[in-house]
């Protein structure tokens, strides 16, 4: 897909995110905005997807969102990829909605294969799905996304150790390196040292996308990552993003991790992101 088209989608996704969290005055815009390019490229330019949705996802690529709090970006991209009506974004976090605060399978929302929100569990689930693909002789790939702060959860390191030991090489794990978590910068809350060195020490093939908010850079990085699959090692992408990207007053701070914009702030944010495909 052309970069222009992808950038148009990114702009629309940012509008969706802002409008969703503003309407219910809750949700997590910061990380969602920072990952807008990644999600748009992944779902529209990288993954091989079948028409429609079934839970088993045989003969198609799978994606697992581990840091479930960035559900707004996930929902927007799923809806605009055709998994469910775009108008349903209107129901985000409302009673009786399929769009729960954190993604779940419980309400049967197409596109979601696991509940996430309690952090640190997504990689293990993805490993199981990747190993099921191998058992089924299914050569498609499994993708995941995790927050950098999320790596403080110990279960990740069980999964990281296992993935390399068992040569789960049909897995591409992306870490959203935005350097922020709820209580502040990750380097202040719990410095994690070199995440690259850690993954490499555990036996992963690691590559970096330095411009994690640049559609072209992501396209190239994902292509490179794909080429690294099937070679006996799990693949990790360190995606350098800016939390709150695309809305100037939300950028470079943890302040908008879990806070919705007010009416005025919404208008300011929307003015910075063109209505390219039509608001829901």
């Amino acid at each position: 897909m052309s970069t222009t088209k992808l950038n148009d989608m990114v702009s629309q996704t940012r509008r969706d995110i802002l409008r969703m969290v503003h309407k219910v005055n809750s949700g997590h815009p910061g990380g969602s905005l920072g990952c807008a390019e990644f999600f748009v490229v992944l779902y529209n330019d990288v993954m091989s997807l079948k028409e429609g949705f079934d839970m088993d996802g045989i003969d198609e690529d799978l994606f697992f969102l581990s840091n479930g709090h960035i559900s707004p970006v996930f929902y927007s991209v799923l809806a605009r990829r055709g998994y469910f009506p775009v108008e349903e974004l209107n129901t985000f976090r409302l009673i009786d909605s399929r769009l729960q605060g954190h993604p779940t399978t419980h309400e049967g929302l197409p596109g979601v294969r696991i509940a996430s929100g309690s952090l640190g569990q997504g990689m293990s689930v993805a490993l199981g799905a990747a190993q099921a693909k191998k058992l089924n002789g299914d050569n498609y790939l499994v993708y995941t996304l995790h927050g950098d702060g999320e790596l403080q959860e110990g279960q990740n390191w069980e999964a990281i150790m296992y993935a390399a030991a068992k040569k789960v090489d049909n897995l591409i794990t992306t870490i959203d390196l935005n350097g922020q978590q709820i209580d502040g910068a990750t380097n202040d809350v719990l410095p994690m040292g070199s995440i690259k060195a850690k993954f490499e020490a555990f036996g992963w093939d690691v590559l970096e996308i330095e411009k994690g908010n640049d559609v072209e850079a992501i396209q190239k990085g994902m292509k490179d990552a794909k080429l690294k699959t099937g070679k006996g090692k799990p693949v990790c992408i360190l995606l350098h993003t800016v939390m709150g990207h695309g809305v100037d007053f939300m950028m470079h701070t943890h302040a908008w991790h879990g806070k919705a914009p007010n009416d005025e702030q919404l208008q300011k944010g929307l003015a910075q992101n063109a209505d390219t495909l039509g608001d829901y």
């Binding site: 839970m55 088993d56 996802g57 045989i58 799978l62 697992f64 294969r113 696991i114 569990q121 997504g122 990689m123 293990s124 689930v125 993805a126 490993l127 199981g128 799905a129 990747a130 190993q131 099921a132 693909k133 058992l135 089924n136 299914d138 110990g154 279960q155 069980e158 999964a159 150790m161 296992y162 030991a165």
Partner: peptide, 19 residues
């Protein structure tokens, strides 16, 4: 290995694909 949390997650994942 001695990693029960990972085991439960992997088990959940294996069901996706019909196991």
């Amino acid at each position: 290995g001695i990693a029960e949390a990972n085991m439960m997650g992997i088990a959940a994942g294996l069901t996706i694909g019909g196991k």
